[in-house]
Design a protein around this nucleic acid. Structure first.
Lengths: 208, 208
DNA sequence: GGCTACATACCGGCAGGCTTGCCTGCCGGT
DNA sequence: ACCGGCAGGCAAGCCTGCCGGTATGTAGCC
């Protein structure tokens, strides 16, 4: 019988493995966002995932493996989500302001907090560091690439790469402060408005 | 010879207390910068300070007290150091580019790493959060104030506060990435150059 | 195609190591 | 002499990594 996978209640082995791994990894990301890297424990992961300690030990024998894998998954998830949300903008309404809104939505997000926890932790953890070091460059490249597809005429402008890099850094800094001081949102909103105005003007000037 | 009590080998009691507290706090900051918040332990602090566990317990009964106090000291130290370095620039050579160099020197510094560890940790720690939340605003105010003293004519320009806030956030983001990816310095240097050029042009335009 | 043997995924408990906070005792200053 | 500052040991709690045991999927054989 050529198994139709939809009718089968139980999944095949590789499917189960994949599901379990993602479940553990998602629980890890969730735990990082919630308790922070310092409060992070494998016990919390198995609790959130609803599995036993043995299951975790089977797939990720040591804690560092779990964290590194979670970091890679987090990066991949954010990259995929980025393309998706960006493509969600109707081509007719692709303005610089809209693009900035989409970009900012990634910094006002639980997954950003998890990313920050891992980034900071990576400074003191060589293994994790190699994972997260690649991330910063990859984010810059992905952003430039997606932006180039959406705004072909602007992609040729000089200093585009530097400008995008600057925006990413700026948003990172703003989001970081906002994580500890929610009241700063007012001042930060003014900064984001100024940036938006500046860039729309620059884009209009470049388009002549 | 002025009446400095240097001849006295032993210090008076309040002086000893103050010295011990600062010694413990500095060891805490040093430990945070070195091992990160997650790897931080009171044992490491007493080891670095070269004192016993009892001494630490006497001045800071619980760990959270120590961390909060270290955060406050770190902020105060950086603020004082900021004014000092800024005043160190000869008034005749006070250009925007120089000011940016001084500002950046605070983000390329071990104390910045300690500050980031505390900032991230503060997200999951209400007590520390109140300390660090005030920090972000204080940094913005101090920067604006010192900048205003050095460049009185620019301080009246519109969007100065927002611009400074943006620069602080931008530098934070750059320094953060650089902490995990030293190779990014090349790309980041280009961003900083671009920013420097932009701001000197803007300053020249404002001065007419 | 059905049954058996093996491999793999998963469970729950245990020991070792580390950290924190407390407690008693000693020393120097006042 | 008294008191505050400091030293060092101790117990409780938690976390990590490992282990034997069990259930389930997969492959080989009739």
């Amino acid at each position: 019988m050529p198994f139709t996978p939809t009718t089968r209640a139980r999944l095949t082995q590789p499917e189960r493995v994949e599901a379990m791994r993602n479940r553990l990894l998602d629980a890890t990301i969730e735990s990082l966002a919630a308790t922070g890297y310092s409060g992070f424990s494998t016990n919390d992961v198995v609790r959130r995932a609803g599995v036993s300690r043995g299951a975790l030990a089977h797939h990720f024998p040591v804690k560092a493996d779990l964290i590194a894998a979670a970091g890679q998954r987090l990066i991949a998830l954010r990259a995929a989500e980025f393309r998706q949300r960006f493509d969600g903008i109707p081509p007719a309404r692709r303005t610089v302001a809209k693009a900035l809104n989409v970009l900012w939505s990634f910094f006002d997000d639980p997954s950003f907090h998890a990313l920050m926890e891992l980034t900071i932790a990576a400074r003191s953890d060589p293994e994790l560091r190699t994972v997260m070091a690649a991330e910063s460059k990859q984010v810059a490249d992905t952003t430039l690439e997606v932006f180039g597809e959406a705004f072909p005429e602007l992609a040729e402008q000089p200093f585009i790469a530097e400008t995008l890099q600057a925006i990413l850094a700026l948003y990172t800094g703003l989001a970081l402060q906002q994580a500890v001081d929610a009241d700063a949102d007012g001042r930060h909103a003014a900064v984001r408005r100024m940036l938006k105005g500046l860039l729309t003007m620059a884009a209009a000037g470049a388009a002549e």
